[in-house]
Every structure is written in structure tokens, then in C-alpha cells.
């Protein structure tokens, strides 16, 4: 559906997007993740045809963005980062204007606007001017704007930014619903959001793709690594190391703290397909140590994201 090849964008000499290549099939919900300034918005803006790339190609279906900009713009619905609308117009007038520009015939216009206002929960503010709306309602006007012509591709730049938790859930549900038939690309820096909504996650940092995979696959890869914290009484660090080291999957044992009354905290680094906690417990049970604390910090997407983006930032 969407084929992006070696996409690059320079702002003067600053390279905002550096050789991104992506293939997005029809009906996929793709989350573009990355820290601030990673090039998410720039990538999305190039996909919408707002400005041309410095190098590389974008083609959607059989259309190349250089030669068929207008056709591509017709297929795409776009919600920009801050919803910049004409503040003086009424919500209805604004949507009516968008419907006209998007070429919806006069006799369907009213039903389409009505349908979208219900879908996005705007029915009760249609007669208000956009300047009066709250941030959340503004965002919904943007969503209605983006979906006006029932676009095949929906590009949303931080759709849940500035919304309250209830609204976030609502917007996510809307995205999920649209994503059943349409291709949705959205950017966010909130990981739980991407985890909850996306089929596929692409993490970008400094204009480059650092991770790309199905959400489930990424989560599983993350799940293999875990850190286990133990607090023991009546134990010495050497003895702990000797007893636990032979257990398969334990890669490191680190002493965290030892108090005067003999409490010892250690951190075990694990990498394993299956849960190792049972083996550890059995090994401890065989000794005369007293187990005070025992818990596992599973590695989540968040830790992957932090590792990937921080590592690279350090290198530079």
C-alpha cells in the first residue's frame, strides 16, 4: 500500500530524517515512536505531501508522490500535531468547508458531517465557534476533518496529546475502529498507547529507524529479559553467588546493599525463554537463608525504547 524508500529530509544542513525505508500493508495500524525531535512529525509531513523529501521516494498504491501529489492528497486524511483551525468559523461551517474542498457532493455533505459528528462526539458543539472549544474537542474536530472523505490512509500526529484519560481511551477506540479497514499511521511518544493500539511499532531516533516489528514480537523479545531482586537475611554474598550462578539463564549477580543486621540485597540479570523464578526459589529453599523479598521486573517496551534511544544518543 505505502512504500517508502530511503526517505531523507534536510533542514538546511540539519538532517531531520535520515534514510527511512518502510513498507506498510493495507489495514495496518502503525505506531511511529521516538523521543522529541526524532523526526516523527517530519516523516509524517512528507507522507502527507506537505513538503517534498530532500531525497528518497514515497509511493502510495501505484502513485509516486512527485508526479501525483493531488491523487495522493485525496487518499490521505491528516491530523496535525496542534489542531490549527480557523477559529472564527463554527464547527459546522468548518466541516462543511472541508467537505466541499474534499469534493463531497452537495446532497451527501450533510449526512456525512452528521455521521462524523456522531462518531467523534461533536454533535453538541456543532453550532459553537472553534475558538470556544477545549483542547480535546479541538482534537476531535481534527479527527473529523481527517476522516471527511473516508480516506484510505489516516495519518495522525500525536492524536491523544493534551487529552484527559477518558478522551484518550475514546480516541484510541476510534483509531482501532478505523484501523479495522483503513491503514493508520500515527506518531506518539507514549509507549503504552502504541502498545495498546498498534499492530506494528517503528521506533525512530535521530532520523533513523532503530526498531521495527510487530507489537507482539517486540513485546516478546522484551519479555525474555528480566531483572530479579532478592533480599535475604542470614546470607553472605559469596554464598549467594555460588548457589545461584549455576542456574541456567542467570547472567549476572550484583550486590545492591548489605545492612549491618545482615540483610543482603542482590539483583539478578536473567535472559531466558521461560520463567526462572521457580528454580531460584528451590535453590534458596535448600539453604538456611531467610527470604524477605523476591520480585521480578519484567523488561517492557518502555525499557527497550529507553535502551535503544539512549544508547545511540550517548554514542554521538
Amino acid at each position: 500500500m505505502i512504500h517508502v524508500d530511503n526517505l531523507t529530509k534536510f533542514y538546511d544542513s540539519f538532517c531531520a530524517v535520515d534514510g527511512i525505508s518502510l513498507d506498510i500493508p493495507k489495514g495496518e495500524i502503525l505506531g511511529l515512536l521516538g523521543p522529541n525531535g526524532a523526526g516523527k512529525t517530519t516523516t509524517l509531513k512528507m507522507l502527507t505531501g506537505y513538503f517534498p523529501p530532500s531525497a528518497g521516494t514515497i509511493s502510495i498504491k501505484d502513485f509516486n508522490i512527485q508526479d501525483h501529489l493531488l491523487e495522493i492528497k485525496k487518499m490521505i486524511g491528516y491530523l496535525p500535531e496542534s489542531s490549527p483551525f480557523y477559529k472564527d468559523l463554527l464547527v459546522y461551517d468548518y466541516l462543511d468547508y472541508v467537505a466541499k474542498i474534499r469534493g463531497i457532493p452537495a446532497d451527501e455533505r450533510h449526512t456525512r458531517i452528521k455521521y462524523l459528528s456522531e462518531l467523534c462526539g461533536l454533535s453538541h458543539v456543532m453550532h459553537k465557534s472553534i475558538a470556544e472549544l477545549s483542547k480535546g474537542l479541538n482534537q476531535r474536530v481534527g479527527l473529523a476533518h481527517a476522516m471527511m472523505r473516508d480516506p484510505e490512509i489516516l495519518i495522525l500526529d500525536e492524536p491523544t496529546q493534551g487529552l484527559d484519560p477518558n478522551q484518550i481511551v475514546e480516541i484510541r477506540n476510534i483509531i482501532r475502529k478505523i484501523g479495522e479497514e483503513k491503514t493508520v499511521i500515527f506518531s506518539t511518544h507514549i509507549l503504552s498507547e502504541a502498545e495498546a493500539t498498534c499492530d506494528r511499532i517503528v521506533i525512530v531516533n535521530r532520523g533513523k529507524i532503530v526498531a521495527d516489528g510487530q507489537t507482539e514480537a517486540l513485546k516478546q523479545a522484551a519479555g525474555k529479559e528480566a531483572a530479579i531482586q532478592l533480599t535475604l537475611a542470614n546470607a553472605s554474598f559469596d554464598a549467594v553467588e555460588q548457589t545461584l550462578k549455576p542456574i541456567e539463564g542467570i547472567e549476572s549477580i550484583k550486590k545492591m546493599d548489605q545492612t549491618d543486621d545482615g540483610r543482603l540485597s542482590v539483583k539478578l540479570g536473567c535472559r531466558s525463554e521461560s520463567d526462572r523464578r521457580e528454580d531460584i526459589y528451590k535453590a534458596i529453599k535448600a539453604t538456611d537463608w531467610v527470604l524477605l523479598e523476591f520480585y521480578q521486573e519484567a523488561k517492557t517496551l518502555e525499557t527497550i525504547f529507553r535502551d535503544l534511544t539512549r544508547q545511540i544518543n550517548k554514542e554521538n
Partner: peptide
């Protein structure tokens, strides 16, 4: 809003 305008056909 220029951005929105330019992403429309």
C-alpha cells in the same frame, strides 16, 4: 492552518 490546507487536494 496552512499545513492543513496544503494537505487537502
Amino acid at each position: 492552518s496552512y499545513e492543513l490546507l496544503m494537505t487537502m487536494p
